[in-house]
């Protein structure tokens, strides 16, 4: 089925919550002479379903705390979902053992936000790049490993003769190139990039983005790209998923999302981007702040800040529905044709 509809990764009804009430003893409370157990959770993801199609760059955007990084980590198998399914090429992977997961790990690689933290400071670049290749191909000859390393280093624009240096000898942009090289070293099909350029300066961001686009072209990669920067999304993404408080608000092809955003939250988010062109655009003011994911609001999670919310929005959780133009929106207002 997955092969048919051309999706590489399928996420279905994903839920992830984190307990914040400590261990068992912390959870016990005396109430009215009775000992009760009291648990509190952060609801990081609440029923997210999406498909990543082969060869595309699916961007996930949203403000901090909306669960976009949790989605990335859950898809990669770094976190176990509380409920829901994740499939890769139609095979379910969220319930596999570490050993069963191994062949998939080679196909799926991750690039992290902070290249200062994601590279081991005590390993040379050569060792950093050698480790994943050796791990996934234990029987490969040394010469071949070295060839691959030289090739990926060249392809990310890092001189192979720098292999004996340590990561602290490189600048942020160069380190991020090395992280990309590490991800590419095992020849993956699918790369999850969690804010790969947020820690970099503008001129370096452009270099790294170009590099990622080149790699996509040459190696036929599929990206799941997590970011909060909408201008990057407009440039890089094939489709965009907008998240708010652990739920998906809108999923649409990039052009469409930018020309006609449907969900009120997407509209507000778009209008808040500082633009160079006009000096002061009117942005849509959102009242209040993002509610805490510990006690989720009832109904639509956005209703407290939405200028178009009505009674139904406060009661009923909207489902993601496919519109005629291919946009998927979870909003009662759009569904009722009043927005």
């Amino acid at each position: 089925m997955a092969e048919q509809n051309n999706s590489l990764v399928q996420v279905r009804d994903l839920y992830k919550r984190f307990s914040i009430s400590g261990d068992l003893l912390d959870q016990l409370q005396f109430k009215g002479g009775k000992l009760t157990r009291h648990q509190e959770y952060v609801h990081a993801i609440n029923g997210v379903s999406l498909d990543v199609k082969k060869g595309e760059a699916l961007c996930v955007v949203g403000e901090s705390g909306c669960g976009k990084s949790t989605v990335a980590r859950t898809v990669m198998g770094l976190l176990t979902p509380t409920a829901g399914q994740i499939s890769y090429r139609g095979e379910r992977i969220d319930n596999l053992s570490d050993k069963q997961m191994l062949p998939y790990r080679k196909k799926m690689q991750m690039i992290f936000q902070n290249p200062y933290a994601s590279l081991n400071p005590r390993m040379t670049i050569m060792e950093t790049l050698k480790e994943p290749i050796r791990f996934h191909n234990p029987s490969m000859a040394s010469a071949e490993v070295n060839d691959i390393i030289a090739e990926v280093m060249l392809s990310v624009g890092v001189d192979p003769s720098w292999g004996e240096r340590y990561s602290h000898e490189f600048s942020g942009g160069q380190r991020q190139r090395i992280s990309i090289a590490r991800a590419l070293a095992v020849d993956p099909e699918f790369i999850v990039a969690d804010e790969p350029i947020s820690a970099l300066d503008v001129s370096i961001q452009a270099q790294v983005l170009n590099l990622m686009m080149d790699a996509q072209e040459q190696r036929n990669l599929t990206y799941l790209f997590i970011t909060h920067d909408l201008s990057v999304v407009e440039h890089f993404g094939t489709r965009v998923a907008v998240m708010y408080l652990g739920t998906l608000c809108e999923l649409a092809p990039t052009k469409q999302l930018f020309s006609s955003p449907r969900h009120p939250y997407t509209q507000a988010l778009m209008s808040a981007i500082p633009r160079l062109e006009d000096d002061r655009p009117d942005y849509i003011k959102l009242s209040g702040e993002v509610p805490t994911p510990v006690n989720l609001p009832s109904g639509c999670v956005f209703h407290g800040r939405c200028p178009h919310a009505n009674e139904r929005c406060k009661q009923e959780i909207p489902v993601l529905t496919l519109l005629d133009d291919g946009t998927q929106v979870a909003c009662h207002g759009v569904e009722e044709n009043r927005l």
């Binding site: 600048s171 942009g173 160069q174 503008v202 001129s203 370096i204 961001q205 452009a206 270099q207 983005l209 170009n210 686009m213 080149d214 920067d229 201008s231 990057v232 407009e234 440039h235 890089f236 990039t254 052009k255 633009r275 160079l276």
Partner: peptide, 18 residues
């Protein structure tokens, strides 16, 4: 180098070096 200055899908204009 700003993404909004480039045509979507095309390469960004980068400044070489650091």
């Amino acid at each position: 180098a700003l993404p909004q200055m480039a045509i979507p899908g095309q390469k960004l204009n980068q400044i070489k070096g650091t």
